[in-house]
């Protein structure tokens, strides 16, 4: 039984993360995030959105996986928007960390 879910919406160039993300390794995140990576690679000039507002917890392997997405977007100069909740501690803190990797990263704190 998984306690997390990733929904990708190709037509809206959006990935939505829900639940508790405490996968056991970076490799497990590589597999889980592969649909997001595919979405990033297929995204056009309007960019790609990653909505983590319903991701209640995430371990550091997951934060590394998010950082890898940001670095990939930086390399290809793809516009990426993260939507996060200000009231969820890990989300607020992680957004600042991700912006330290890529100054042009867009973050919408709701």
């Amino acid at each position: 039984m998984k306690d997390w879910q990733i929904v990708t919406q190709d037509e809206r160039a959006t990935a939505i993360l829900r639940g508790v993300f405490r996968l056991e390794s970076p490799e497990a995140y590589d597999a889980a995030f592969s649909p997001i990576v595919a979405g990033l690679n297929a995204a056009g000039d309007s960019g790609y959105t990653v909505d983590i507002t319903d991701a209640t917890l995430m371990n550091s392997s997951g934060i590394r996986a998010l950082a890898d997405l940001v670095l990939a977007a930086k390399r290809t100069q793809l516009r990426v928007l993260f939507v996060a909740k200000r009231s969820v501690p890990w989300q607020l803190k992680t957004m600042a960390s991700l912006q330290s990797l890529h100054a042009q990263l867009q973050v919408d704190l709701v």
């Binding site: 371990n59 550091s60 590394r64 950082a67 890898d68 960390s97």
Partner: peptide, 20 residues
């Protein structure tokens, strides 16, 4: 930033506890 960019294995969680 350096550890993420270098893909250093291990230690990121502890670093985050101190940093964040």
């Amino acid at each position: 930033r350096e550890r993420v960019e270098a893909r250093t294995r291990g230690g990121l969680g502890l670093l985050i506890l101190a940093k964040d």
